[in-house]
Computed example of a mutant assay.
Amino acid sequence: MAQEEPGAEVGRGVPPRRKDADATRSALLMAAVLRFARDGYDRTSVREVAADVGVNQALVYRYFGSKDALFEEVSAHTSAIGELLAGPLDAIGPGLGDLLSREGDQGAPGLVALLRSPGSAAAMERLRQLVTDDFTLGLARRLPGEDGRLRAELVAALLVGVGLLQAVVRTPQLGGGNPERVRGLAAALVRPLVAPVDRAAGGGAERPAPGAGSPGSAADAGPSR
């Protein structure tokens, strides 16, 4: 049975609201996700998060312990990225493009919150962990070829770079351009990085991705005359 939450705001003459503890905690976490993704760590206060839910800030400390602990939970909201990595390789390009074409706090709010918190050492460490340990290693294990880790880091660079320009720098095209165009071009950039290795017929040697420089290729032939 739901019980009255200690510390909830009670208006004069208004009976105390009865809230389920789990529901209140979830509401506070979702409010924090939106606040941190929009304003970053430094510009977000516990009082504002509590006010967004309509409760006393004491409940934030009760359920999460501290602002740092609350931010740590928010930064874990990267489920869309995890789902992307768990899907088929040929869906990663379009999926990443779709993720990047959304508004930052709708696509990967945990990542956006980290990108908007450069002054927090904890946020930067969590970002490093997300990029190198969670994303890059997870993707590299699934990519064929000896340079799987390098290609995975290039995909991560695209994810972080575009996220930074969208959410923090807010460049004209990535921050407010056509989302479908962003999706299509991002998918095209990712596709050759995650595609299975193309081997020459009968030879078993790796064939460079289209456009990659190699001895005798057009990229090394010098300008045409």
Rank of each mutant, 00 (worst) to 15 (best):
M1K: 14
A2F: 03
Q3E: 11
Q3F: 00
E5W: 07
R17G: 04
A23V: 08
L28R: 13
L34G: 03
R35T: 07
F36Q: 11
T44Q: 14
A50N: 13
D52Y: 04
V53Q: 10
Y63I: 11
F64Y: 13
G65F: 09
L70I: 09
F71H: 14
E73F: 00
T78C: 08
S79F: 08
S79W: 11
G82W: 08
E83C: 05
E83A: 08
G87T: 14
L89K: 07
A91Q: 15
A91N: 11
G93D: 07
D98N: 04
L99G: 05
L100C: 02
Q106Y: 10
A123N: 11
E125Q: 10
R126G: 05
R128G: 01
T132N: 12
D133Q: 13
D134W: 02
T136C: 10
A140V: 10
P144Q: 02
G145C: 01
E153L: 09
E153P: 07
V155Q: 01
A157S: 12
A157P: 01
G161Y: 06
L165N: 05
Q166E: 02
A167D: 15
V169H: 03
G175E: 04
R181E: 05
A186Q: 07
A187L: 01
V190Q: 09
P196R: 08
A200G: 14
A201L: 11
G202R: 12
P215K: 15
A218G: 03
A219R: 15
